[in-house]
Simulated scan of single mutants.
Amino acid sequence: MSDDTSLDEFDREILRRLQVDARATGEEIGAAVHLSAAAVQRRIKRLRAIGAITAEVAIVDPALVGQAMSFIVGVELERERADMLDAFRRAARADPNVQQCYYVTGVADFILIVVARDMADFEAFTRRLLFDNSNIRRFTTSVVMSRDKVGNVVPV
């Protein structure tokens, strides 16, 4: 294996398995991919170091922790100067209701995935992040009716 960021088939299979279960042991993965547990651990360490693995987290069901509602929010900025874009990015990253934030092309400048306890909680979010921001021209909201597929597994 080279020292650069190229991935071989062992690396790819390790990534596939870790995306399904980040708690899988080196022994379990090694048995499945035909490598020793030590070799798997070395590869995982390298995958973290090169940024192929960006985080290892628990995925929480929003409804079970009181965040029963989800929204898709399109945000159009008044001005698209770099400092204004960065300011909005910082605000979105800092807000706990914002689960995902995408800078996009098209009518909206940003698409946000937002969770809230209820409509009152969402209204408080809109006041805090959107209405109180003088650089927001307009925003549109779609209420998520059902979560048919939610995931972070990247095809490897």
Rank of each mutant, 00 (worst) to 15 (best):
A32C: 03
L18T: 00
I14P: 00
V73W: 11
D3S: 11
L64C: 02
V154S: 09
E27T: 08
E13Y: 00
V114Q: 04
F88L: 03
R117V: 12
E56V: 10
R16T: 02
A92G: 09
T105K: 04
H34A: 14
A37N: 03
V115E: 15
V65D: 06
F122K: 05
V40K: 00
A63S: 11
F139M: 09
A63Y: 06
A49Q: 10
H34D: 15
V75Y: 04
R42F: 08
R127Q: 15
Q100R: 15
S36Q: 00
V65W: 07
D61K: 14
G66T: 06
R90L: 14
M84I: 01
N133I: 08
Q67P: 02
R137H: 11
F10H: 12
F131H: 15
V75A: 04
S6N: 14
D86F: 12
V144Y: 02
Q99S: 11
A124E: 05
A82V: 06
A63G: 10
D95K: 05
Y102A: 15
T25W: 09
F71W: 09
R147Y: 02
T54W: 06
M69E: 15
A116L: 11
E27I: 03
L77H: 04
A124C: 02
A32R: 07
V154W: 13
V65K: 07
R81W: 09
V153T: 11
E9W: 07
F10Q: 10
G74N: 14
A39L: 01
T5Y: 11
L129N: 01
E78Y: 11
I111W: 15
D8P: 00
F110R: 10
R138V: 15
V154L: 14
S2M: 11
M145T: 06
A120C: 00
N97V: 02
C101Q: 12
V115K: 14
A92D: 09
R16N: 00
V20P: 06
V114H: 10
I53F: 03
D118F: 09
M1H: 07
A58R: 09
E13W: 02
V75W: 01
T126K: 09
G66I: 05
D61M: 10
I50F: 01
Y103C: 06
F125N: 11
M145G: 08
A92T: 06
D4M: 05
R128I: 11
Q19A: 02
I72D: 12
F131G: 13
L85P: 03
R127P: 05
T105W: 03
R138S: 06
R138E: 07
R93S: 10
T140P: 02
A68F: 07
F88K: 00
R23Q: 14
I29Y: 01
N135S: 13
A52R: 03
V60N: 07
H34N: 15
V104S: 02
A82C: 08
